[in-house]
Every structure is written in C-alpha cells, then in structure tokens.
Design a protein around this nucleic acid. Structure first.
Length: 202
DNA sequence: AAGGATCCAACGTACTGTTA
DNA sequence: TAACAGTACGTTGGATCCTT
C-alpha cells in the first residue's frame, strides 16, 4: 500500500496505519537526528523532535497538492529538528548552518530543486532556515576534509547515511569498536573546531 | 536479562619536530 | 644524528543507558 493511501486511513482514525508510518519513517528520523550529533545536543531530544515533525507531517499532509508523502515528511521532520537544534544551541553561539549543511549531504537523493518546490508548496514559515549559503557548506566540508583521517571520513559518511554500527563495521571490515572510537574521535575534533570558530565569530 | 549504542579512558605504534 | 617529546591514529576494555 502506498503511503498516501495509508494516510487516508490514518486520518480516518486508524491507529495501525499510524504505527506503520512511524515504523517506516523511524530510520529517516534517526538519520536526521544523527546529522546533528555534532552540536552536542541531546540525541534523544532530537529524535523526539523528529518524531513530532513526522506527526505534523501526517496531520498536515494534503494529498491534493500532489506531493509524495515521503518528501513532505522529510521537510517537516527536518524543519522540526532544525528549530529544536536552533533553540538548543542559541546560547552556545554556534552557527546553525554548520549542521544543516551536513544534513543536506545525507539526503541529496532528493534534489535541491525538488526540496524548494516542496517547501513552497508546504508554505514553510521560515524557508530561509533551509537555505544554506555556498560558503557555509564549503566551510563544513573543508573542516571534514582537513580534520578527519580517511578512515574517519568513511565512518562518518556511512554513519550519516543511517546504517548501524554493525553494518558499518562489516562494510569496512573492522571491529565495531573501531567504528565507535572513530566516531568519538571525529566528533571531538569537529566540536572543538566549531567551538573555536564560534568564538572567533563573536 | 541480553544485546546494541554510546561514552570514556588508557594504551601501543608511527610519525614529526626539536635539541644537544 | 640519536634521543626525546608531542601528536595523531587506531585498538582495547569497561561502564552506562536504552531497547527488546
């Protein structure tokens, strides 16, 4: 059954349908949340926010707009998460855009143009939140390139795609522990660097 | 209770720059 | 150039928290 069809049942009060959608989109939410781990924000909170975004997507989805639910949900989840992260980091003086750009990289299977179309259709209140300048993308990318070892980069790339430690380990032919530690290390590195940049900016 | 995810700390090794 | 200190990288063991 297509998501769009399931949604009609959900809107009619079908709990099973809702559970089905939650299960189906959990990995997406988790992947989104992972993209923000650099901030040091509470991971669980971010996942929660993502789920709220998913609920909103279900609530607000308008089939007559002819947008695939997946794309719409993606936007809603992202928006919710960004808002939460922004609130959480406001006092830390860290530029939000640094995280968004990483997030973007993960989901580039939906092209930018498409995203923007969806944003307009969905009449997002703050579309500027989703627009990231080229320079900022460059900054975070250069950060990753210059700071991380090839192994760490590979781990990060896979991690952000949403797959499990086990799978990453298998794919890279390394113990799970190595994956874990690479993640710890690269996280520290990037945090440190971002912190430094934030201090310079203010 | 078991297993996975995550965090933390300590360790060995390799490389690099400095100094005598 | 040999000895040394510092740093980066990857590994390991163990603890905690969460989910199943």
């Amino acid at each position: 059954m297509e998501d769009e069809e399931v949604l009609t049942y959900v809107n009619a009060g079908c709990r099973q349908g809702m559970e089905y959608l939650i299960e189906k989109y959990k990995p997406l939410v988790r992947a989104k949340a992972r993209s923000y781990f650099l901030v040091g924000a509470d991971r669980e909170d971010i996942v929660q926010e993502g789920m709220i975004g998913l609920f909103k997507a279900v609530r607000d989805y308008k089939p007559e707009k002819q947008i695939p639910f997946k794309a719409f949900a993606d936007i809603c989840i992202t928006r919710q998460v960004i808002t939460a992260v922004k609130a959480a980091t406001r006092q830390k003086h860290i530029p939000l855009n640094s995280y968004v750009s990483l997030n973007k990289k993960v989901f580039d299977e939906d092209s930018d143009k498409y995203l923007i179309e969806v944003i307009e259709e969905a009449s997002v209140t703050n579309p500027e939140e989703l627009l990231i300048s080229k320079e900022e993308i460059c900054f975070i990318e250069s950060l990753v390139i210059e700071l991380l070892s090839p192994f760490e980069k590979e781990v990060l790339r896979k991690y952000l795609s949403g797959i499990t430690y086990q799978e990453i380990a298998k794919q890279l032919n390394k113990p799970v522990k190595s994956i874990d530690n690479a993640l710890q290390r690269l996280k520290k590195k990037i945090e440190k660097k971002l912190q430094k940049k934030a201090e310079e900016d203010y």
